[in-house]
Design a protein around this nucleic acid. Structure first.
Lengths: 169, 169
DNA sequence: AGACAAACGCGAAGATAATTGCTTTAAAGC
DNA sequence: GCTTTAAAGCAATTATCTTCGCGTTTGTCT
């Protein structure tokens, strides 16, 4: 299932990736996909969540900078191969229940990461600051400029966030 | 045309806003819309660009902070009434030619704004830093949390950017 | 093994969207 | 005022998605 969607996204426009096509490629019946996910957005969103869970687990390196960088780089690498298209598809599904849950879960884990840093006595950003300073720009660049998320950019963003945190607290 | 789309977006899901429906509401023939825009995404993207041009002209207040705040607040106010839905629709159309042009135009104007500040001798962020620190978070919050862009939040982001710029240059 | 529940396969029917050739209206230039 | 050109209306055709009832498989529990 995962494979079929990723392959289709690789050489088709997002609008061309439909339930019937995914079903054909995956060798399952369309009705199965419609029953399980309802629409393409739900399916793709599920896959993004799955990928992030596998490829971008929340790190625990012992320092805030280490955690942030690893989290950011992993995140960038997990979404990069799929390009802007997958992010757009995931964004489409955003406000409904399921994807909200997967997002919330991830947010909770990131919060725990920040809490660990705070417990060590480090100056830490808020979760919102983290999401807005790192996740948001990575998504944004993909979405509007087609710039794939890469490790170097991710590190740059972490740096920017930490400079701000140091300066303002 | 504008009106028909905005009205439909007001009380329908994005997927329910289709060319045939917009055409009916606007009292024009669907073929007209298909010929001019090809699909819904192109149409919506056009409308977003038009709105931004009208409602969020690039300011020239005399100070960087003033410019940034006004630009951010206007931007937030221009997109807020449309909610996440319109951003998603615009994002869908992102990488193709037309929307790239409108985006580029806007980016050029913002760059000019930054240049003016630099000419006055102010410490200025890069265009990328501006987009990533202000535009990206506003989009992100709308997209994933349904939090409408509001003036206060916009100002907070400007503040964050300027603290960073002061601290790092 | 047998019984049950849950998920999947199948194909057809129904609904909607997208395209097309042609006609008609409107506008612009001369 | 007339000609030319571009855009909009129109309706039929085509393509595509989406849903549905029903039978079959698969896995689990006893």
């Amino acid at each position: 299932m995962q494979a079929a969607v990723v392959e289709l996204l690789a050489d088709h426009q997002l609008e061309e990736v439909t339930i019937p096509r995914v079903a054909e490629r995956a060798g399952v019946h369309q009705a199965t996909l419609y029953r399980r996910w309802g629409n393409i957005a739900g399916l793709v969103d599920d896959i993004v969540a799955e990928r992030l869970g596998e490829l971008a687990p929340i790190p625990d390196t012992g320092t805030l900078r280490g955690d942030l960088e690893l989290a950011a780089v992993r995140f960038a690498e997990a979404i990069a191969p799929l390009g802007a298209i997958m992010i757009r598809a995931a964004a489409l599904a955003a406000p409904d229940a399921d994807s909200a849950v997967s997002f919330k879960t991830r947010a909770t884990q990131l919060q725990a990461m920040l809490d660990r840093a705070a417990a060590r006595g480090e100056k830490t950003p808020t979760l919102t600051e983290l999401l807005e300073s790192i996740t948001a720009p990575l998504y944004f660049q993909e979405l509007f400029f087609g710039r794939p998320a890469d490790a170097e950019h991710a590190r740059e963003l972490v740096d920017r966030l930490l400079i701000y945190v140091e300066a303002s607290r």
